[in-house]
Protein backbone atom coordinates (compact mmCIF):
# COMPACT_ATOMS: atom_id res chain seq x y z
CA UNK A 1 0.00 0.00 0.00
CA UNK A 2 2.99 2.26 0.40
CA UNK A 3 4.51 4.43 -2.26
CA UNK A 4 7.79 2.51 -2.41
CA UNK A 5 9.21 2.60 -5.89
CA UNK A 6 9.11 -1.04 -6.85
CA UNK A 7 10.74 -0.60 -10.23
CA UNK A 8 13.67 1.12 -8.53
CA UNK A 9 13.95 -1.76 -6.03
CA UNK A 10 14.12 -4.29 -8.82
CA UNK A 11 16.48 -2.20 -10.94
CA UNK A 12 18.82 -1.71 -7.98
CA UNK A 13 18.85 -5.40 -7.02
CA UNK A 14 19.30 -6.33 -10.69
CA UNK A 15 22.27 -4.00 -11.20
CA UNK A 16 24.05 -5.09 -8.02
CA UNK A 17 23.39 -8.73 -8.90
CA UNK A 18 24.67 -8.21 -12.42
CA UNK A 19 27.90 -6.58 -11.19
CA UNK A 20 28.50 -9.42 -8.71
CA UNK A 21 27.68 -12.02 -11.34
CA UNK A 22 30.01 -10.52 -13.93
CA UNK A 23 32.83 -9.89 -11.45
CA UNK A 24 32.60 -13.27 -9.73
CA UNK A 25 31.92 -15.10 -12.95
CA UNK A 26 34.79 -13.32 -14.69
CA UNK A 27 37.33 -14.28 -12.05
CA UNK A 28 36.02 -17.84 -11.85
CA UNK A 29 36.01 -18.23 -15.64
CA UNK A 30 39.47 -16.70 -15.78
CA UNK A 31 40.72 -19.34 -13.38
CA UNK A 32 38.93 -22.31 -14.85
CA UNK A 33 39.11 -21.74 -18.63
CA UNK A 34 42.78 -21.74 -19.76
CA UNK A 35 42.36 -19.40 -22.76
CA UNK A 36 40.50 -16.81 -20.74
CA UNK A 37 42.87 -17.22 -17.82
CA UNK A 38 45.81 -15.99 -19.91
CA UNK A 39 43.97 -12.81 -20.91
CA UNK A 40 42.73 -12.11 -17.40
CA UNK A 41 46.07 -12.73 -15.72
CA UNK A 42 47.96 -10.64 -18.30
CA UNK A 43 45.55 -7.75 -17.85
CA UNK A 44 45.71 -8.10 -14.08
CA UNK A 45 49.50 -8.16 -13.89
CA UNK A 46 49.72 -5.22 -16.28
CA UNK A 47 47.30 -3.27 -14.11
CA UNK A 48 48.93 -4.22 -10.81
CA UNK A 49 51.88 -1.83 -11.14
CA UNK A 50 50.10 1.41 -12.12
CA UNK A 51 47.17 0.96 -9.70
CA UNK A 52 49.33 0.30 -6.65
CA UNK A 53 51.44 3.32 -7.61
CA UNK A 54 48.32 5.42 -7.95
CA UNK A 55 46.89 4.35 -4.60
CA UNK A 56 50.08 4.24 -2.55
CA UNK A 57 50.55 7.95 -2.12
CA UNK A 58 52.21 9.22 -5.28
CA UNK A 59 48.88 10.75 -6.28
CA UNK A 60 46.99 11.56 -3.11
CA UNK A 61 44.08 13.17 -4.99
CA UNK A 62 42.95 9.74 -6.25
CA UNK A 63 42.39 8.66 -2.65
CA UNK A 64 40.41 11.81 -1.86
CA UNK A 65 38.29 11.38 -4.98
CA UNK A 66 37.66 7.75 -4.04
CA UNK A 67 36.55 8.76 -0.55
CA UNK A 68 34.34 11.54 -1.89
CA UNK A 69 32.72 9.26 -4.47
CA UNK A 70 32.06 6.66 -1.77
CA UNK A 71 30.44 9.27 0.48
CA UNK A 72 28.23 10.58 -2.34
CA UNK A 73 27.13 7.02 -3.10
CA UNK A 74 26.40 6.42 0.58
CA UNK A 75 24.19 9.52 0.67
CA UNK A 76 22.32 8.28 -2.41
CA UNK A 77 21.88 4.83 -0.85
CA UNK A 78 20.59 6.28 2.43
CA UNK A 79 18.11 8.44 0.49
CA UNK A 80 17.02 5.31 -1.39
CA UNK A 81 16.53 3.37 1.85
CA UNK A 82 14.60 6.20 3.52
CA UNK A 83 12.36 6.53 0.45
CA UNK A 84 10.59 3.31 1.38
CA UNK A 85 7.33 2.80 3.16
CA UNK A 86 5.66 6.20 2.99
CA UNK A 87 2.01 6.66 2.22
CA UNK A 88 0.19 5.85 5.42
CA UNK A 89 -2.00 8.66 6.57
CA UNK A 90 -4.13 9.35 9.61
CA UNK A 91 -6.56 11.67 7.85
CA UNK A 92 -9.27 9.86 5.98
CA UNK A 93 -11.30 12.74 4.68
CA UNK A 94 -11.03 16.49 4.67
CA UNK A 95 -14.03 18.56 3.69
CA UNK A 96 -13.20 22.21 3.43
CA UNK A 97 -15.32 25.20 3.96
CA UNK A 98 -17.42 26.06 0.92
CA UNK A 99 -20.63 27.43 -0.47
CA UNK A 100 -22.14 24.26 -1.93
CA UNK A 101 -24.89 22.32 -0.23
CA UNK A 102 -22.63 19.34 0.38
CA UNK A 103 -19.95 21.40 2.04
CA UNK A 104 -19.99 22.84 5.54
CA UNK A 105 -19.90 26.55 5.94
CA UNK A 106 -17.89 28.22 8.62
CA UNK A 107 -15.17 25.66 9.24
CA UNK A 108 -13.68 22.59 7.70
CA UNK A 109 -14.17 18.98 8.68
CA UNK A 110 -11.47 16.38 9.14
CA UNK A 111 -12.26 12.70 9.63
CA UNK A 112 -9.54 10.60 11.20
CA UNK A 113 -8.80 7.06 10.05
CA UNK A 114 -9.44 5.85 13.60
CA UNK A 115 -13.14 6.53 13.04
CA UNK A 116 -13.12 3.96 10.27
CA UNK A 117 -11.28 1.48 12.48
CA UNK A 118 -13.95 1.77 15.14
CA UNK A 119 -16.90 1.67 12.76
CA UNK A 120 -15.66 -1.44 10.99
CA UNK A 121 -14.67 -3.18 14.21
CA UNK A 122 -18.15 -2.54 15.54
CA UNK A 123 -19.83 -3.68 12.34
CA UNK A 124 -17.78 -6.84 11.81
CA UNK A 125 -16.88 -8.07 15.28
CA UNK A 126 -20.18 -9.93 15.62
CA UNK A 127 -19.62 -11.94 12.47
CA UNK A 128 -18.70 -15.50 13.39
CA UNK A 129 -16.47 -15.78 10.30
CA UNK A 130 -14.27 -12.89 11.33
CA UNK A 131 -11.73 -12.98 14.14
CA UNK A 132 -10.59 -9.37 14.00
CA UNK A 133 -10.32 -6.35 11.75
CA UNK A 134 -7.56 -3.80 11.17
CA UNK A 135 -8.21 -0.60 9.27
CA UNK A 136 -5.58 1.78 7.95
CA UNK A 137 -5.70 4.69 5.55
CA UNK A 138 -3.15 5.23 2.80
CA UNK A 139 -2.58 7.98 0.34
CA UNK A 140 -2.25 6.42 -3.11
CA UNK A 141 -1.76 8.66 -6.13
CA UNK A 142 -3.35 11.58 -4.33
CA UNK A 143 -6.39 9.61 -3.24
CA UNK A 144 -7.07 8.33 0.25
CA UNK A 145 -7.63 4.59 0.25
CA UNK A 146 -8.99 2.65 3.18
CA UNK A 147 -7.36 -0.72 3.71
CA UNK A 148 -9.37 -3.24 5.70
CA UNK A 149 -7.44 -6.30 6.85
CA UNK A 150 -9.87 -9.04 7.85
CA UNK A 151 -8.46 -11.88 9.91
CA UNK A 152 -10.90 -14.61 9.06
CA UNK A 153 -11.51 -17.59 11.26
CA UNK A 154 -10.18 -20.98 10.26
CA UNK A 155 -12.41 -22.50 7.61
CA UNK A 156 -14.49 -19.37 7.04
CA UNK A 157 -15.82 -18.86 3.54
CA UNK A 158 -14.08 -15.95 1.80
CA UNK A 159 -17.32 -15.30 -0.07
CA UNK A 160 -19.27 -14.88 3.15
CA UNK A 161 -16.52 -12.75 4.67
CA UNK A 162 -16.58 -10.59 1.60
CA UNK A 163 -20.36 -10.27 1.76
CA UNK A 164 -20.27 -9.00 5.34
CA UNK A 165 -17.44 -6.60 4.56
CA UNK A 166 -19.30 -5.24 1.54
CA UNK A 167 -22.36 -4.71 3.71
CA UNK A 168 -20.27 -2.85 6.29
CA UNK A 169 -18.71 -0.77 3.52
CA UNK A 170 -22.15 0.22 2.24
CA UNK A 171 -23.12 1.33 5.73
CA UNK A 172 -19.86 3.22 5.97
CA UNK A 173 -20.49 4.93 2.62
CA UNK A 174 -23.85 6.20 3.73
CA UNK A 175 -22.36 7.29 7.04
CA UNK A 176 -19.57 9.21 5.34
CA UNK A 177 -21.70 10.56 2.50
CA UNK A 178 -18.83 9.97 0.13
CA UNK A 179 -17.29 6.92 -1.53
CA UNK A 180 -13.63 6.46 -0.77
CA UNK A 181 -11.79 3.55 -2.41
CA UNK A 182 -11.70 0.54 -0.10
CA UNK A 183 -9.15 -2.23 -0.40
CA UNK A 184 -9.95 -5.45 1.48
CA UNK A 185 -7.48 -8.20 2.28
CA UNK A 186 -8.79 -11.40 3.78
CA UNK A 187 -5.95 -13.09 5.63
CA UNK A 188 -5.51 -15.98 7.97
CA UNK A 189 -2.95 -14.96 10.49
CA UNK A 190 -1.82 -16.20 13.86
CA UNK A 191 -4.91 -14.63 15.37
CA UNK A 192 -7.14 -16.80 13.19
CA UNK A 193 -5.23 -19.90 14.23
CA UNK A 194 -5.62 -19.14 17.91
CA UNK A 195 -9.29 -18.31 17.68
CA UNK A 196 -9.99 -21.78 16.31
CA UNK A 197 -12.80 -23.01 14.17
CA UNK A 198 -16.24 -21.53 14.45
CA UNK A 199 -17.79 -24.92 13.80
CA UNK A 200 -16.71 -28.31 14.98
CA UNK A 201 -17.11 -31.37 12.84
CA UNK A 202 -17.09 -34.59 14.79
Amino acid sequence: MTNSNRFLNRLFVFLVGLVLLVAGGGVAAGALIPGVQQTVSDAASNAAGPTSDALSGSAVWILWVTALAAIVLIVILVAFILGHGHGRTSTLLRVSNGAGGDQPSGGSLVIDAKVAQQVFEEALSHDSNIASVDVAAFSVKGETVLRITVHSRRGASPVEVRRSVDKAVRTWDSLLGETTPVFVQIVSGIRSQLSGSSTRVA
Binding site: L11, F14, G17, L20, L21, G25, V27
Partner: peptide, 18 residues
Protein backbone atom coordinates in the same frame (compact mmCIF):
# COMPACT_ATOMS: atom_id res chain seq x y z
CA UNK B 1 38.10 -19.22 -7.29
CA UNK B 2 35.75 -20.49 -4.58
CA UNK B 3 35.12 -16.93 -3.40
CA UNK B 4 34.49 -15.79 -6.97
CA UNK B 5 31.99 -18.59 -7.50
CA UNK B 6 30.17 -17.62 -4.30
CA UNK B 7 30.05 -13.98 -5.43
CA UNK B 8 28.75 -15.05 -8.84
CA UNK B 9 26.04 -17.22 -7.27
CA UNK B 10 24.93 -14.37 -4.98
CA UNK B 11 24.81 -12.13 -8.05
CA UNK B 12 22.78 -14.69 -9.96
CA UNK B 13 20.31 -15.02 -7.06
CA UNK B 14 19.89 -11.23 -6.94
CA UNK B 15 19.30 -11.08 -10.71
CA UNK B 16 16.70 -13.87 -10.49
CA UNK B 17 14.98 -12.19 -7.53
CA UNK B 18 14.88 -8.88 -9.36
Amino acid sequence: VAGAVVVAVVGLILVIVS
